[in-house]
Structures are given as structure tokens and as C-alpha cells.
């Protein structure tokens, strides 16, 4: 499983240990995020530092997690690389997520 999670200051940090977040990984990621949410994680930080490329289905998995939470709790994105930031800006993801440069800043951000 290319995903890992750890708890830090009331947050669940989910890291993605793959360089491509595309159709082949989007469904496993969605299931992983749903499991985290079902198990009571309500403050998620997604560490994207390893991801060099994300396509629309990868984006879909992140938004699916957000929709699943349904406004209860928070999901923040951290450490996105430039190509991933380009996708976030094209798709106005800043309207849906709090996007921060590092995991540490994401944890501090209220």
C-alpha cells in the first residue's frame, strides 16, 4: 500500500508514497481515505510531497474524501509540487481545500 498515516497534534497525516497519482491509484486512495474517515479521523492533512504528477482521477479521490466528510471536520493539502499546484489552480481547488506549503503549516493552520 503506497499510503501511510500517522497522528500528530489531533491531525491524521496521510502521506502518498508514489510519484504519480493517476487512475491506477485513485480508487485505492479513495478507499484509504474513506477508511480513515470511517475510523474517526476528522482532521486530515494530505502530504503530497512525493507526488510529481496528478490527473483528474487523482483529484477526484481527494474531493471524494472531502465530500464524504460532508463538512464535519477538515481536510488540508500540503507540500504540493509545481505541476500539482498547476492542476489545483486550473481547477480552483483553493475554493475547496486549504492548501499549504508544508505539513507543519497545515497542522498549525486553524
Amino acid at each position: 500500500m503506497p499510503f501511510d498515516s500517522k497522528n500528530d497534534a489531533g491531525h491524521t497525516i496521510v502521506s502518498i508514497d508514489e510519484t504519480r497519482l493517476d487512475a491506477s491509484l485513485s480508487e485505492p486512495l479513495r478507499i484509504y481515505l474513506f477508511d480513515q474517515i470511517d475510523n474517526g479521523s476528522d482532521n486530515l492533512v494530505i502530504d503530497l510531497s512525493q507526488v510529481r504528477f496528478m490527473d483528474s482521477s487523482g483529484l477526484g479521490a481527494l474531493v471524494a474524501g472531502l465530500k464524504k466528510m460532508g463538512g464535519a471536520g477538515s481536510m488540508k493539502l500540503a507540500s504540493a509540487q509545481p505541476a500539482v499546484m498547476d492542476l489545483f489552480s486550473l481547477t480552483s481547488m483553493d475554493k475547496l481545500f486549504t492548501i499549504l506549503p508544508t505539513v507543519t503549516e497545515a497542522i498549525k493552520e486553524k
Binding site: 477526484g60 474531493v63 489552480s89 481547477t91 475547496l96
Partner: peptide, 9 residues
């Protein structure tokens, strides 16, 4: 002109 994909939120 960006914009959130249709159906996401």
C-alpha cells in the same frame, strides 16, 4: 479562467 470541475461540490 479557472473553476471547480462540474459535479465536485
Amino acid at each position: 479562467c479557472g473553476g471547480v470541475p462540474i459535479g465536485m461540490m
